[in-house]
Write a protein that binds this DNA or RNA. Structure first.
Lengths: 345, 345
DNA sequence: CTGAAAGCGCTTACAG
DNA sequence: CTGAAAGCGCTTACAG
């Protein structure tokens, strides 16, 4: 005998009453409820999730799908832990558990998500690393699974999403550089099909245009999102006949490798090449010269995602009545010295 | 109508036969099986996990409990993504899904795990960030939930565990420093109750003893496991009347802050103070001077954990017949210049 | 080789 | 206020 039956037998009442007492239903004698709660705590009883899910049709779990690959492993993952901390905190208020669902490199993300969804492992989903064309969106819509995307896609966007304010970053970075006399500005974006690369590139081109500048196609540099990628960006720039005087990076880790490549060539970041990084990381201030970059709260982003997701879930939508969230997450400039140089006009 | 019933109705056969076909049971007509598999693929059918779990008593999911706090958020988390990648790959071979269970800072880790276990959310558990006294071990033993610990505890250790080879690192680091003439060697450990701090401290003291050295208690410096902690380590060392000539760090991120503090004081790492870091990170080689540290494969560690865990699970133990795994994970020296100085004797 | 039926642990109308 | 019973979606002995 186990589970609720054991508890009921131990108390010599029916399992129905035990269930009602535990679930805070009215119409339970307060003394009975107290006995049940005490016994449950003493015996460490918690309802079997499979039984409960089967009956209720919900799991009380929210899935956060992340993808592990060589790059995220080495880099962006301190991104996720902060977001996860915010998510768990916000979901806990509604007794929802966050389960992180890591998709193996060996598996197609779409197939992975399809399996998760079909098995009804979670009630709602947060997806990340959105691609330019992301079939997961269609899958989730078709399955009527509430979801929010961390990142935009190239497709229609009636669904809820939050994305970093790549436009704001591109405009602020370009404005700073132009004010210091730069006209030859390059941008470094990922060499994958992740959508943020396209978003950032377009925002960058647009920012240049506002200052009457056009972009040299060779100044759009695709590289791995890692310190090694930064090193190859350095290679690419050094190999150019007509070099840019400034570069804007979409990943902060790129800065580390770029600094190294410049140092090897006897050049000084911030003096021979102006550099603006992306998100502030632990190493940003410790690089020499300090990297100019942008700050954000990962934890608040996690809370924002949780609230945006809850608004799409029928059971919680009335508490978060904003409708599908479309939000550009602001990032705040952190001035360093990596873009301090001034170009003579 | 949904789930297996819908599939059965669509094919005009019984749900029992559908189930047997999908689960690869013998005694199913091969043509029937093919029809079932085709229809399942076409309709995107996957068995509802709650129904399956309830009937089978297993969930096919493995939980990896991690704790999010300010420090892990900022630092060690690129640790986890690599381990997760290894875990997912190894578990996928047995059609087991990894779900990462992040315990909120607002919740007691023991209570969190108890809830997870009682609800039977997963079949087996990997715990991390083991404390000196870790009641989660007793909980898992009492509940007869297969588990493996990433990290030792101060208590009995009949259970399966894998831990980093702190002893090997301490001995190799101390041997290098002693060979260069250092006698005044400090160690930096976390200021929390996480067990690795005690393990590393003891290993360090033992390593010194092998060279006939004793440790000055003030040379055992407790600090936050972050770049900020490294900065405070610098403060502590600079404030000492009789300063150490070398320091061994238990967290690589500490090096960044320590470098900065030394630079601010006009001192040069590797020249005025020898530094040995712990795990090699993306920044290790890019620090100047390059940090002497230790290399390991996170992915292999994840695979090791998966195999160690599977060996404790009745259904898989015959495939991994090693018995409870007790393993010190080796780390390989990466020579930098941060400990290059030689002390005149 | 297939179907009918039991039962996994819950929650919840329903009857009293 | 409580108990008895149905049923969520599966899997699996059992019967044929």
């Amino acid at each position: 005998m186990k589970g609720i039956k054991r508890l009921a037998q131990h108390l010599d009442i029916s399992i129905g009453t035990v269930s009602r007492a535990l679930n805070g239903k009215p119409d339970v004698n307060e003394e009975t409820r107290k006995r049940v709660l005490d016994a449950a705590a003493k015996l460490g009883y918690a309802p079997n999730q499979a039984g409960r899910s089967l009956r209720r049709g919900t799991t009380n779990a929210i899935g956060f799908m992340i993808e592990t690959n060589e790059e995220t492993e080495a880099n962006s993952d301190n991104f996720f832990l902060g977001v996860i901390a915010g998510l768990t905190g916000a979901l806990l208020r509604h007794n929802l558990d966050l389960v992180v669902l890591p998709c193996s490199v060996n598996e197609d993300p779409h197939d992975y998500l399809q399996r998760i969804v079909a098995r009804r492992l979670v009630d709602a989903v947060i997806i990340s690393a959105t691609q330019r064309e992301d079939r997961r969106i269609d899958l989730l819509k078709a399955a009527h699974v509430p979801f929010i995307a961390l990142g935009r896609t190239g497709g229609p966007d009636e669904h809820a999403w939050i994305d970093l304010d790549f436009e704001g970053v591109a405009h602020e970075a370009v404005a700073r550089l132009v004010a210091r006399g730069h006209k030859q500005i390059a941008v470094a974006i990922p060499d994958t099909d992740i959508n943020l690369g396209y978003v950032f590139r377009d925002a960058f081109i647009d920012a240049l245009a506002r200052h009457g500048l056009t972009v040299d196609p060779s100044f759009i540099i695709r590289a791995r999102s890692s310190e090694h990628g930064g090193y190859t960006i350095g290679n690419a720039i050094l190999a150019m006949e007509d070099r840019p005087t400034a570069v804007v990076l979409v990943y902060e880790m790129m800065a580390i490798g770029l600094y190294r490549r410049l140092n090897e060539a006897g050049l000084t970041p911030g003096q021979d090449l102006a550099i603006v990084g992306f998100r502030e990381g632990p190493q940003s201030q410790f690089l020499s010269p300090a990297l100019t970059c942008f700050r954000m709260s990962l934890r608040d982003l996690g809370i924002g995602l949780a609230e945006g997701l809850l608004a799409t879930m029928p059971d919680y939508a009335d508490l978060y009545p904003a409708g599908p969230m479309h939000k550009l997450w602001p990032m705040e400039l952190v001035e360093g010295e990596s873009d301090g140089m001034v170009i003579d006009r």
